Computed example of a mutant assay.
Amino acid sequence: MRIILLGPPGAGKGTQAVRLVERLGVPQLSTGDMLRAAIAAGTPVGLKAKAIMDRGDLVSDDVVLGIIAERIEEPDTRKGFILDGFPRTVAQAEGFDRMLEQKGLKLDAVIEFKVDQDALVERIVKRAKETEARGEPVRKDDNPEVFKTRLEAYRTQTAPLSTYYEGRGCLRAVDGMRPIDEVTEALKKIVG
C-alpha cells in the first residue's frame, strides 16, 4: 500500500505511522531521513542536495522528488510505503503524482487526520508538561508559540492538499481527536 498521511502537527500522524508500519510491513519514508541518506551515499541527487544545503538554501521540490524517486526504487518499498510530512504543497503533490505515474504506480490512500486545531495547542502543552515531568527533554516544537507558527504554516501551505486529493478521489478522513486506539481502528478500516 502506498499511503500519504495528512494533518497538522500534533494530529497523531507519527504515532499512527509506526502502527501502520507494523501492520502493513512497509516503511515510513521521511524526506529528512531520505535527504541525509542520499547525501551520505553520495548519489547524484544527494550530491546536488548537499551543494544546495551547503549554500544555506532550501532544497527544491525537484531535488526532493528526485530523492523520493530514488528511495521508492529500494527493495523494501515494493509492497508500498507511508509518507508523513510530504507532500507539503499542491505543487509537490502534482510533481509526486507525475513521478508515480511515470513509474506505473499510484497512491492507495491519502488519509487526513481531522482535528480541532485549538485543542491541538492544548494537547501539545499537555505533552510538553508530561515530558518535563518525566525528566525528559521537551521538543523545541512543543513550545506553544512555535507550535502556533507551525500550525499557521500548515493552514496556508499544506491544508489545500485536502481539496487536491479529494478532487483525485483518494482522500479518506479519520477523527484525529479520538483516543489513539480508536484512530488505529479507523485506519484499519481504510487500509484493510
Rank of each mutant, 00 (worst) to 15 (best):
T31C: 03
D33M: 01
L35T: 06
L35D: 00
R36K: 11
A38M: 06
I39L: 09
I39R: 10
I39V: 15
A40P: 13
A40L: 14
A41S: 13
G42Y: 14
G42I: 14
K48L: 15
K48E: 15
K50C: 09
A51W: 10
A51F: 09
R55M: 09
D57T: 04
L58M: 12
L58I: 10
D61F: 09
D62C: 13
V64K: 01
V64W: 02
L65H: 03
I67Q: 04
I68K: 00
I68E: 01
I68Y: 00
R71Q: 12
R71Y: 09
I72E: 11
I72F: 08
E73K: 15
P75S: 09
T77L: 04
R78Y: 02
R78S: 08
G80Y: 06
F81H: 02
F81S: 03
I82K: 00
L83F: 14
D84K: 06
D84C: 05
G85E: 09
G85Q: 07
G85C: 07
T89E: 08
A91Q: 15
A91C: 12
A93K: 12
A93E: 14
E94S: 13
E94M: 13
G95S: 12
G95E: 11
F96A: 05
D97Y: 02
L100Q: 02
E101P: 06
Q102N: 10
Q102R: 13
K106A: 14
L107D: 04
L107H: 04
L107Y: 04
D108W: 00
D108V: 00
A109F: 12
A109M: 05
V110A: 07
V110N: 01
K114D: 15
K114T: 15
D116N: 13
Q117E: 14
D118L: 07
D118K: 03
A119F: 09
A119V: 10
A119D: 10
E122L: 10
E122P: 00
R123E: 03
I124H: 01
V125N: 04
R127G: 07
A128L: 02
A128W: 01
A128F: 01
K129V: 13
